[in-house]
């Protein structure tokens, strides 16, 4: 049976929402503290949103060196899925598990509102249930969400189809809307080459409950629930 570790850093604040979204799709989830050196056997890791370590120095820069991140690095290197949401995405970039960086929003203001995004890459552990090109309305809530990367990195991400979510293209009337932060190529989420590590600025866990309206974020969690480890990496056979 799959289990998910939701990592809690000092300053995480979307950890409970993430845990509940996972439980909603029938998968076991547990919190893992940032000082833990192990993921307690979890198959999938979520780095939730928030302001880990007060965003000191740069968003995600200190969290990257917390003890649990050593375990997350090993987990990712072994092909284990990792989903970073918002601050989690910033941590994944700082940890070099994903390329690029997330800088202060182009408009400087903290942006908290729903935005429209298109799901592009569906060959990931967290978007497999979506049809490519489907449009979702997901909330964003961030001050440092402007994705930047070197020109050749951006070309590589596009050429390899590693853009997972893209803000719906801007119009002439509102050059920064709905791209809420000035991200390069309107990028809202990317993945590693194999699709196991995914970073998203929008918050699917906040719209994963039908009680709160159209649950556009639920698919990320039903995808996660459908993920199975490749047989070759199973180290302990089930009894």
């Amino acid at each position: 049976m799959l289990t998910v570790a939701v990592v809690r850093f000092p300053g995480s604040n979307c950890d409970v929402d993430a845990l509940r979204a996972v439980e909603r799709v029938g998968v076991m989830a547990q919190f893992v503290w940032h000082r833990d050196t192990s993921l307690h056997g979890a198959d999938i890791v979520i780095l939730p949103g928030g302001f880990s370590y007060g965003d000191y120095l740069r968003s995600g820069a200190i969290a990257r060196f917390s003890p649990v991140m050593q375990a997350v690095q090993r987990h990712a290197a072994d092909g284990g899925p990792v989903l970073g949401i918002c601050n989690g995405f910033q941590i994944l970039c700082e940890a070099h598990l994903l390329p690029g960086a997330l800088l202060r929003n182009a408009g400087l203001a903290f942006v908290s509102k729903p935005v429209d995004v298109v799901v592009e890459r569906t060959a990931t552990a967290f978007t497999s249930v979506f049809e490519p090109g489907v449009r979702l309305r997901l909330p964003v809530a961030h001050g440092d969400g402007r994705f930047v990367a070197a020109e050749d990195t951006l070309r590589m991400l596009e050429a390899e189809g590693r853009v997972v979510l893209r803000y719906v293209p801007a119009t002439e009337e509102s050059p920064l809307q709905p791209n809420p932060n000035g991200s390069a190529n309107h990028i809202a989420g990317i993945s590693n080459a194999t699709g196991t590590v995914v970073g998203l600025m929008p918050h699917p866990e906040r719209v994963a409950d039908p009680l709160l309206g159209v649950p556009d974020g639920l698919g990320f969690f039903t995808s996660l629930a459908a993920w199975r480890p490749p047989v070759s990496t199973l180290s302990t056979p089930n009894p």
């Binding site: 960086a101 930047v148 990367a149």
Partner: peptide, 8 residues
């Protein structure tokens, strides 16, 4: 390693 982000 830490004080600056080599990407930006």
């Amino acid at each position: 390693k830490l004080l600056a982000n080599p990407v930006t």
